[in-house]
């Protein structure tokens, strides 16, 4: 096992053994079940994917993502456990990238789990499913990963400048709220904020697909993610651990 792989394995193990990370993963995954039970109780049929995504996407998933970013970076620096990796024969950029990959795996796995739970609930709760619908829904969850990844990178960047766990969480949440609120008052500014396109998955169910719009949004995600990632890496490389 080379050191970069070792770092990946370690980060995954450290994260998966965190009780609050796994508990929240489980709770978010079970939302489709909760929504199905509620809809059965009130006796109305709901579009499970739409309601789940509209509930998870704007608030729950960002909070979970900020928690992972804080856990992987700020918490490790605050408790000093980051020293256990930094004093090993491994370059800092490898540690940084392995943390990002591990977080991506967890976020992607969560989205896929929600998709799968929704599928199961549709199958057993409403007895409605089709192969075409299943693929379309899978695409929705897969493309949702990209804005969530950029949000994670933003939180990682913030984590390099903030020294406390609470501070990192609060600033990430405030900045996210600000990014969501500003376009309401200044619509033009919204064009330059990636958070304005968090629900781009709605474009992926159009027929035909609006390719040029999708391309420009994807470019914005790529550019924002790259900027946050590179600045975050620079700050992580320079960071002094006391």
């Amino acid at each position: 096992m080379n050191r970069w792989q070792a770092s990946l394995t370690n980060e995954l193990q450290i994260l998966l053994y965190r009780r609050k990370i796994m508990l929240l993963f489980l709770l978010i995954s079970l939302l489709p079940v909760v929504f199905t039970l509620i809809s059965n109780a009130i006796g109305s049929i709901i579009d499970l994917h739409t309601i789940t995504l509209s509930f998870v996407m704007p608030f729950l998933l960002p909070c979970y993502i900020f928690m992972i970013a804080t856990e992987l970076f700020v918490s490790e620096i605050e408790t000093g456990t980051i020293k256990l990796a930094l004093t090993r024969p491994i370059a800092r950029w490898k540690i940084y990238t392995s943390k990002i990959i591990v977080a991506s795996i967890v976020i992607f796995a969560l989205l896929l789990t929600i998709w799968f739970m929704s599928f199961l609930m549709n199958l057993f709760g409403y007895n409605t499913w089709s192969a075409k619908g299943l693929i379309e829904e899978l695409v929705i969850y897969v493309v949702t990963f990209f804005p969530m990844f950029v949000l994670f990178m933003l939180s990682v960047w913030i984590g390099q400048m903030v020294h406390s766990i609470t501070g990192s969480m609060v600033i990430s949440l405030l900045l996210y709220a600000l990014f969501k609120v500003v376009p309401i008052f200044i619509p033009l500014l919204g064009n330059f904020l990636f958070t304005n396109y968090m629900d781009w998955y709605t474009l992926w169910v159009n027929n035909p697909l609006p390719w040029s719009q999708l391309f420009s949004i994807a470019s914005m995600f790529l550019a924002s993610g790259a900027i946050f990632g590179v600045v975050g890496l620079f700050l992580f490389e320079q960071k002094e651990i006391n």
Binding site: Q13, I14, Y17, R18, R19, T79, G80, T81, K83, L84, T87
Partner: peptide
């Protein structure tokens, strides 16, 4: 071993 003894407490 640098200054404070650190380890992952949840492991």
């Amino acid at each position: 071993l640098i200054e404070k003894s650190v380890a992952y407490e949840h492991l």
